[in-house]
């Protein structure tokens, strides 16, 4: 075997083995890479104790209630389960009903007490006039459907 071919084999086998190792590693760590948990994850998970976690999903339509001062209450849904969230603080510009959201905090007596709320947006970009005419023409896919589609079906 010529040295050139030896080097080619070495590189090809090396890259192949490395990809295999990476694939195994990634499937092993799986869910732990997730930046947040869905409300369904939370419902299936029983007692979380006082662990600080992130829950993500869509802000349920019609669920946002402004309380005293900067207090906001809303529900985060993944269209299967939903969890009530209470948060005191400034919300990001993109926070609105039907849009993606990630809240960080602790679950206390079934209510998620958030100390940080981040907005998550879907992959759709369009001018306001186009969004308006889509809504008028009735061809608007509801934001919840679009938002849910932008999330992975399961952990990874």
């Amino acid at each position: 075997m010529k040295r050139k071919h030896k080097r080619l084999t070495f590189v090809a086998v090396g890259v192949g083995l490395l990809s295999l190792a990476a694939a195994l590693f990634l499937s092993a760590i799986g869910d732990s890479v997730a930046f947040f948990h869905s409300p369904s994850d939370l419902a299936n998970h029983g007692d979380l104790g006082d662990r600080r976690i992130r829950v993500g999903g869509l802000v349920e339509d019609g669920s946002v209630q402004r309380g005293q001062g900067a207090e906001v209450r809303f529900r985060v849904t993944d269209l299967a389960q939903s969890v009530p969230v209470v948060y005191v603080g400034i919300l990001p510009d993109l926070f609105r009903e039907g849009q993606g959201v990630v809240a960080q905090g602790r679950l206390r007596d079934g209510v998620f007490v958030a100390d940080e709320v981040l907005a998550r947006h879907d992959e759709t970009y369009m001018p306001p006039e186009v969004a308006e005419s889509l809504k008028q023409a009735g061809t608007w896919q509801h934001m919840e459907a679009a938002g849910a589609a932008s999330m992975p079906a399961d952990g990874y």
């Binding site: 869910d31 997730a34 948990h37 001018p127």
Partner: peptide, 25 residues
Amino acid sequence: VDWWYTLHQPASVIRLEGPAIHASM
């Protein structure tokens, strides 16, 4: 962005369903 829950949104242009971004952008 497809394999895990991330804060970053999934791809808008290079994806199987075609771009999710209006032609004017």
